[in-house]
Design a protein around this nucleic acid. Structure first.
Length: 421
RNA sequence: GGAGAGGUGGCCGAGCCGGUCGAAGGCAGCCGCCUGCUAAGCGGUUAUAGGGGUAACACCUUAUCCAGGGUUCGAAUCCCUGCCUCUCCGCCA
């Protein structure tokens, strides 16, 4: 959420920034609501002040056994008027909040302006795609003959976009998870394992709600949501807290399954592991001071890249343009891994700096040493990495002509073997 | 699921027969004084958010004693609902 006060006082700048995102937000609605709100707020506060003063006086009179009926009658009228104003005020505040919750974040100045992914900027490339002396296969054509991924049985158990991993396939998931967590924690990230179901407040805190309800799986009675990413529970660890400056930056890494409806993606990536309703992911989440977040995004992205480098998987890093960025993000790098079976780079990680956007929604603040008041922290997160897609990349990049798959060096101790056949 | 207890400021903890309570006291923290070996002693001070105000402070004001409703001229204090925590019993991975 943007700062209402900031928006009020910087209308033109905010308007220009939002136009870059083509968000179609009409700030004049906000302005009108704010104008009304401030007038009513002042009236309400003046009346409350009067009530407080007179009520104290009534108390004094009563103690001295004097008559206060007149004042009490008068105050009854004041109380009624306060009630009326507050009701109107509440309506306006609800409208303002709803409006603000649906306004996306302002993009960082470094973000290229553009309407869709064609305007994204390739920042760097790492690794050289392997030269095959045979036609490389898609991961599903590798995995099914090996018997390590069973799409049909997954569909039988739960439906389309669910998969059963078996044998080395299941072991791969566990190996990748452990490899990533070990590497991340060695860099100072604290490992956490959070709840996989969260309440409405948490989903609102990170920005999934209210706008993206259709992307989420929901459980009724009690009303809970399955997390679409560890970002949600992990960022909400500090919801409503005031942190000390010397605690920052706080860095977490978490493995969790992720659940997504994938509404509106009918017909996209219907085969294979790329787009599933349930997938495993290891996530990085940071809380830091505002002046550190740009640098922390670079470090976080580098930490995610390091995993691909250690796995020997070629990739490129793309800076998303204004039109392709997520709702809550101020700046996002996507890391795309090379998939020889499909001859393209495919998103495997998304690393974002949210500025104070999530912190404001989730009320996560910090106090500077020796300074009055509090400030919102900046939050960041990124996948390190999406495990299913990493497995896809390993299978496709390390496939052999005979249908076997070489296990990357760093995974061998986790897999307990050096080849899957 | 059944029966109780409770949620107060950074922490501990009073208040809870409604008014003088943003809230005693203690601890921790900060400033100053005294003493000057560690320690102790004395005085003062220390919440967050919104609105107004200022060049910036100061300052004024509103709200906040888990959350949301209600009663009342007035609620931390009374009533209702929800959430959470703890203890005991039952059940269970």
């Amino acid at each position: 959420m943007l700062d209402p006060k900031f928006v009020r006082e910087n209308m033109d700048a905010v308007k220009a920034a939002l136009e870059k995102r083509a968000a179609g937000i009409d700030l004049s609605v906000f302005r009108a609501l704010e104008d009304q709100r401030l007038v009513l707020l002042r009236e309400s506060e003046d009346l409350r002040n009067k009530r407080n003063v007179v009520s104290t006086e009534i108390g004094r009179l009563k103690r001295e056994k004097q008559d206060a009926d007149g004042l009490m009658k008068e105050m009854k009228g004041v109380a009624d008027r306060i009630g009326e104003i507050d009701e109107i005020l509440k309506g306006i505040e609800d409208k303002t909040r709803l409006f603000m919750l649906n306004v996306p974040n302002i993009p960082n100045a470094a973000v290229p302006v553009g309407k869709d992914e064609t305007c994204n900027l390739e920042v760097r490339k790492w690794g050289t795609p392997r030269a095959f002396d045979f036609e490389p296969l898609n991961h599903w054509d590798i995995a099914e003959p090996l018997g390590i991924i069973d799409f049909e049985t997954g569909a039988k158990i739960a439906g389309a976009r669910f998969t059963l991993m078996k044998g080395a396939g299941a072991r791969f998931e566990r190996a990748l998870m452990n490899f990533m967590l070990d590497l991340n924690t060695s860099k100072g990230y604290t490992e956490v394992f959070p709840p996989l179901l969260v309440n409405r407040e948490s989903m609102t805190g990170t920005g999934q709600l209210p706008k993206f309800e259709m992307d989420l799986f929901r459980v009724m009675d009690p009303e809970l949501y399955l997390i679409p990413t560890a970002e949600v529970p992990v960022t909400n660890i500090h919801r409503g807290e005031i942190l000390r400056e010397d605690q920052l930056p706080i860095c977490y890494t978490a493995y969790t399954p992720c659940f997504r409806r994938e509404a509106g993606s009918y017909g996209k990536d219907v085969r294979g592991l790329i787009r599933q309703h349930q997938f495993n992911k290891v996530e990085l989440v940071k809380f830091c001071r505002p002046e550190d977040s740009e640098n922390e995004l670079e470090k976080l992205t580098a930490d995610a890249e390091d995993i691909l480098q250690k796995l020997g998987l070629p990739y490129r890093v793309v800076l998303l343009c204004t039109g392709d960025m997520g709702f809550s993000s101020a700046m996002t790098y996507d890391i795309e891994v090379w998939l020889p079976g499909q001859q393209l780079y495919r998103e495997i990680s998304s690393c974002s700096n949210f500025g104070d956007f999530q912190a404001r929604r989730a009320d996560i603040r910090f106090k500077r040493e020796g300074k009055k008041g509090t400030e919102f922290v900046h939050t960041l997160n990124g996948s390190a990495l999406a495990i299913g897609r990493t497995l896809v990349a390993v299978l496709e990049n390390y496939q052999m002509q005979d249908g076997s798959v070489i296990v990357p060096d760093v995974l061998q101790k986790y897999m307990g073997c050096d080849i899957v056949k």
